[in-house]
Amino acid sequence: MHKPNVTVAMVVKCAERYLLVEERDKSTGQRVLNQPAGHLEANESLIAAAQRELLEETGLNLAPQGLVGIYSLQARNGTHYLRFCFFAELDEASETAPQDSDIIACHWLNIAQIKEQPLRSSIVLTCIDDAQNRPILPLEYLRHRQD
């Protein structure tokens, strides 16, 4: 039975800039940019996972304000990811302090700057584009239950 890897990500916007994390691509070693993102852990809700990953990778403790979308991605490494991308908007850019040793730096960038950078995946721009041009879905559409 096929089981995709479940990941969460956060598009964080302030004015016309977006928060991205700089990390090394594990297969190429190249420095790339990505949304704060990571894997869902056991017994964790999608919303809690997104908030935890944002805190670990940027030092920001923000709750998601909505859902950008759900994405199925067949990565170059052959892995199938199911990505739940969330949205948060700030009035003022906050200082970042990554706690995850895999994060080299955090950057607040506008769209033109992002397009000039090496990205972890094309899904980085897709999520930002969707956050700009599609309705952000209420978090009530997601339910977490433990039976």
Score class of each variant (00 low, 15 high):
15 A>T: 10
73 L>M: 06
42 A>D: 14
126 T>D: 08
4 P>Y: 03
117 Q>T: 15
64 P>L: 09
4 P>D: 01
98 P>G: 02
117 Q>Y: 02
23 E>G: 02
115 K>H: 08
84 F>K: 00
137 L>T: 07
21 V>Q: 04
9 A>V: 05
133 N>M: 12
109 L>Q: 02
142 L>Q: 08
15 A>K: 06
30 Q>D: 15
39 H>T: 12
109 L>V: 07
119 L>T: 12
1 M>Q: 08
47 I>F: 04
39 H>G: 14
111 I>N: 07
114 I>D: 00
59 G>D: 10
52 R>Q: 13
46 L>R: 04
90 L>V: 10
90 L>N: 04
35 Q>D: 09
116 E>T: 06
133 N>S: 15
142 L>K: 05
85 C>D: 05
3 K>G: 08
79 T>R: 00
104 I>V: 15
122 S>H: 09
123 I>L: 13
70 I>G: 01
39 H>S: 13
117 Q>I: 06
119 L>I: 11
46 L>K: 00
80 H>I: 03
73 L>V: 14
111 I>V: 14
45 S>V: 00
43 N>L: 08
1 M>W: 02
30 Q>W: 08
90 L>I: 10
112 A>Y: 06
24 R>P: 00
140 E>G: 13
66 G>P: 00
52 R>S: 13
119 L>G: 09
96 T>Q: 04
92 E>K: 06
118 P>L: 00
82 L>A: 13
18 Y>Q: 13
110 N>M: 08
64 P>T: 11
59 G>W: 03
17 R>I: 11
50 A>D: 09
135 P>M: 06
132 Q>H: 07
31 R>S: 15
91 D>G: 12
73 L>P: 04
143 R>W: 03
10 M>C: 10
53 E>A: 04
122 S>R: 11
23 E>T: 15
56 E>A: 14
32 V>N: 01
8 V>Q: 02
24 R>L: 10
101 S>L: 13
105 A>I: 04
24 R>S: 06
29 G>R: 09
97 A>H: 12
97 A>Q: 13
36 P>I: 01
133 N>A: 12
100 D>V: 07
91 D>A: 14
45 S>G: 10
89 E>K: 11
99 Q>G: 14
95 E>M: 13
54 L>Y: 02
141 Y>K: 09
4 P>L: 05
131 A>V: 12
90 L>A: 08
42 A>G: 12
123 I>S: 06
93 A>Q: 14
129 D>I: 03
108 W>H: 10
84 F>A: 04
71 Y>R: 08
30 Q>P: 04
31 R>V: 15
30 Q>R: 15
30 Q>H: 14
129 D>W: 04
103 I>E: 02
80 H>G: 07
4 P>R: 01
14 C>F: 05
42 A>I: 14
42 A>F: 13
47 I>Q: 03
105 A>S: 12
